[in-house]
Amino acid sequence: MNRKQIIPFTCETFVLSLLFVSAFNFVLRGQSEDLRQISELFALCGEGISFAALGELLLLSFLIAAVRYLLFSEKRFKNMLTQTRITLMLMSVFFLAGICSAVFHWFPFRMWQAWLGFFLSFSVGTAVSFAVMTIKTDMESKQYQDKLDMFRQGNHEDEDSVKGA
């Protein structure tokens, strides 16, 4: 990823976040008064997204794009595995979204059930995907290592037979 890609990726993330918030607004429009109490993102009672919320989402999108640039730049983390980058990326998104939620009142901080749901869904999702990724790549790595050992063994046998001859 190069520096020029930060702006397109910011736009991409911004559009995605708008789609999500709009979808929530649409689905939950019947409970708009309750939503207004809970989150600043739904301040217009399901009628749209406020300019303030747009700016906040844009800021979050930019921060996520910057982290992605940092983590996926080959110059900075040349030898980092993609799965490690993805894990760090997910953790960064979680962290940044948490900070934005606290600062911009997107999340009902005093409602422990909401926190629990947020943590559970995020950690279970991350843990499952990470476990699948790790199992898959570990199996592949083992296969490679076995074949490499066999290759080396074969080579040594060849060398020994040449020496013996």
Binding site: N79, L81, T137, L148
Partner: peptide
Amino acid sequence: IRHIRSIKADIDGRLLLTMDSGDKLW
């Protein structure tokens, strides 16, 4: 190939090699 100490598969299809010298190569 004889100097590859270990191989780590990555999810995007690349392989990270650790050489006998300790150097890492993709």
